[in-house]
Design a binder for these strands. Structure first.
Lengths: 196, 196
DNA sequence: CCAAAAGTGTTGAATGTACACCCATGG
DNA sequence: CCATGGGTGTACATTCAACACTTTTGG
């Protein structure tokens, strides 16, 4: 029987691996007077997370109070093995984490936290597709992200594979901190057109 | 000295009054094994809240663990007096609540929770302006919300005041449950144009 | 020269903002 | 008949999805 006064911190980390969004879940009890971030850092290697945000706090089925965090790791980074036997509570948190990520992908630059330092547009597409849960064309992905100034060109190109094809341009995220790229879907303040 | 194992639930309620977004803050300690919603209900009359959502969990300056909720009350509803002497922690939570509200106003129908059952467009504008923190024209507000199907016409018109003017049409929110009206700012799934 | 992959041009639709103008009422 | 507030029409900018077409490579 868990102590009803205890507090658990749950790290829900997502990483794209081989075309799939993979969950890694870790939990620790928060010590008395311990900051949330410290407990989180005991649960997972926070330095490896390119982005972290708090997800939600709920009472788990066993009565434990739990605060969940969403963490994102670049596809090319080393990360712990996928957590496969998820408890129902954990499974719900993973779903919530994925929903949060999916929503933010369309109006922020969060994808920087899932992508390597530099990449081609097709490589980036292979990250967006599992993260969004639906298909995206490389053409439109490039257009939208370049127009918004989210992506910046990087010197050089990626040589084509054995099957040929034009060499791909390399890009990086202009910023690697979370930014809102489309602040108002509507109801913008008067006289605030796109900053060009 | 607060018990470091205790858990406080903070209700941050916002209501528009006389052109201002007014905060009401209440806190209660969550009892052992008590669900979060139950504690919240002890803090504030939840039935009076047209919308509630969890805001964030943090350790307060005095070491207490606190989970904050954002609540919204229609402008015409009775509600407790404004909480004026806000502690720094509370003040930060109010800021966070306002920020969350502002963001959601532009891509959801949350405003239903701040508006009376029926209203004219100018009345609605007087709610949006303080809630958004910037000016909005009644013209565009009407256009955007009607086009999105967020607002529906209601039988009848509001008679003009002493100074004359054309009688105003009455509207209501088509739904009074939170709905995302602009799900994807970009990167929509293929073949998913506006449902018209 | 052909297939493959990357990238650009272009079109059409949707959505928003700004602003001019028309409508209905009180005095 | 004029001031006031309400509402519509229209023009214009922005943004995006879709798709045709061009570019650059390997074999």
């Amino acid at each position: 029987m868990p102590d009803s006064t205890s507090h658990t911190v749950v790290a829900v980390v997502l990483q794209v691996r081989q075309g799939r969004l993979v969950p890694i879940v870790r939990r620790v009890d928060r010590g008395p007077a311990e900051p949330l971030e410290t407990a989180l850092a005991r649960a997972i290697d926070v330095a490896a997370l390119a982005h972290v945000e708090q997800l939600e706090t709920r009472v788990l089925r066993d009565g434990t109070l739990a605060t969940a965090y969403l963490g994102l790791v670049p596809a090319d980074a080393d990360a712990p093995d996928e957590t496969d036997d998820l408890a129902p509570d954990e499974s719900e948190l993973v779903t919530a984490a994925h929903a949060r990520l999916r929503a933010k992908l369309s109006y922020t630059n969060v994808a920087f936290a899932l992508a390597p330092e530099t990449f081609t547009i097709s490589e980036l597409r292979e990250i967006y597709v599992p993260a969004l849960g639906h298909d995206v064309s490389a053409t439109n992905l490039q257009r939208v992200l370049v127009r918004r100034g989210v992506l910046a060109r990087v010197e050089g190109r990626r040589a084509p594979g054995r099957t040929g094809g034009r060499p791909a341009a390399l890009y990086r995220f202009a910023s690697r901190r979370l930014e809102i790229t489309d602040e108002f879907a509507a109801l913008r303040p008067p006289g605030s057109r796109a900053t060009g």
